[in-house]
Write a protein that binds this DNA or RNA. Sequence first.
RNA 1: GUGGAAAUAGCUCAGUCGGUUAGAGCGCCAGAUUGUGGUCCUGGAGGUCGUGGGUUCGAUCCCCAUUUUCCACCCCA
Length: 417
Amino acid sequence: MAIKALKGTKDIFGDEVKNLEKIENIIREVCKNFGVGEIRTPIFELTHLFQRGVGNTTDIVQKEMYSFIDKGENNITLKPESTAAVVRAYLEHNMGENAQPTKLYYLSPTFRYERPEAGRLRQFHQFGVEIFGASSAIADAEVISIAYTMLKRLNINNVSLHINSLGGPQCRAKYNEVLKEYLASKKDLLCPLCNERRIKNPLRVLDCKNPDCQKLFVDAPRTIDSLDKECKDHFELLKDLLTKMDIPYIVDSQIVRGLDYYTKTVFEFILEGKNYSGTVCGGGRYDRLVEEIGSKPVPAVGFGTGIERLLIAYLEENKNLELDKRDIFIGYRGNLALEKAVVLVNNLREKKFNADTDLLGRSVKAQMKYANKIGVKFAAIIGDTELETQMLSIKNMATSEESKVSFVDLEAFLLNN
RNA sequence: GUGGAAAUAGCUCAGUCGGUUAGAGCGCCAGAUUGUGGUCCUGGAGGUCGUGGGUUCGAUCCCCAUUUUCCACCCCA
């Protein structure tokens, strides 16, 4: 019985790897431009960390974690998101003592036990940014700008930015009262799920996808109407900065986010695609999370994005992408020529050219076919004549043009072409 | 976790009202005056028809179970 990859997991190879590499390169470049440094935290942490950090009432913690007891009887969980782990590392290494703010990004495998579908696997990859130690909306704007810049450089244009503000603890408490009252007045019309949430976590009710419920919410109280002056100013500054940076946004009171730790700003980039529609990137401010996990309060803001979803969006907008071409293929005919080809190719590789030769001892024709398939710019065959004259006849694969080049001038030729 | 559809070659899929050697296109390998790719032509390799059981003289096809994938919910990135 053949062994196959587990449900919700997959092997990544071929063009997919090349595309992912491109995306990752753009991500790293954007982070560099914004002065954001990378952090790599372990793949697993104590389960307790996520229970505290993500929130015990969330679906992620309640039913989607890969948890197990290791041989030392520690309760371990494969990370279902990275923010809690980054916060743990921030506190553990006293990063708050360094020059502030602390700007970190991660690019990490992430695990959630869910029903897999397109753009959602059980092992997936997340890219995210966290900025610690900056309470001003300037940081919120910068975080959004990072995500926006990344999407733009990936040529993903069919997304829209939705922003909202949940306010601080006081505003949220106030809002919860108003909302509860409002929802109670509608309880006979709400679906069973909404009525359950109405008691436990009223904010989540607004997230209900039931169209009948949504109709009721048109005149529901909005979080932004319950903001105190500080939170309101914060939100106004954010909107102002986004406008000044030419980042278009929609204020959307339905954006409440699924994780408990958000305060003030929340946002999502929502994709309208053929193969996938939905949130491709989401985040916000979480001023109370660091205190929740550690002891001292540290303001923080960040976002997370699923690389697989990013890839779907990227492929929709970038149909005929040119994958990197190898520079030269050097084939051979005969044993002496074989040795010469291997040596030449090896020398070129040492000089950091991309060079390839035939490993199967095929006919000249087959070697040329191979050169064509792997997509080299140039191809040449070494035979008796070439060995005698020490000259190569290099063929430009795109134009069929041939150039005579001596063995010693090979590097110079490649540099100039 | 709920509901629905699907699973046949490396890929995309046909097909058999249940019958002997299961097909196509693409891809792969090889030929077309034994030293040159891309188009065209010819040939070849490659499948225990997802897995296990049942019905049957006989199952890739019908039935049951199971696994996986996809879609819609739920939730999220």
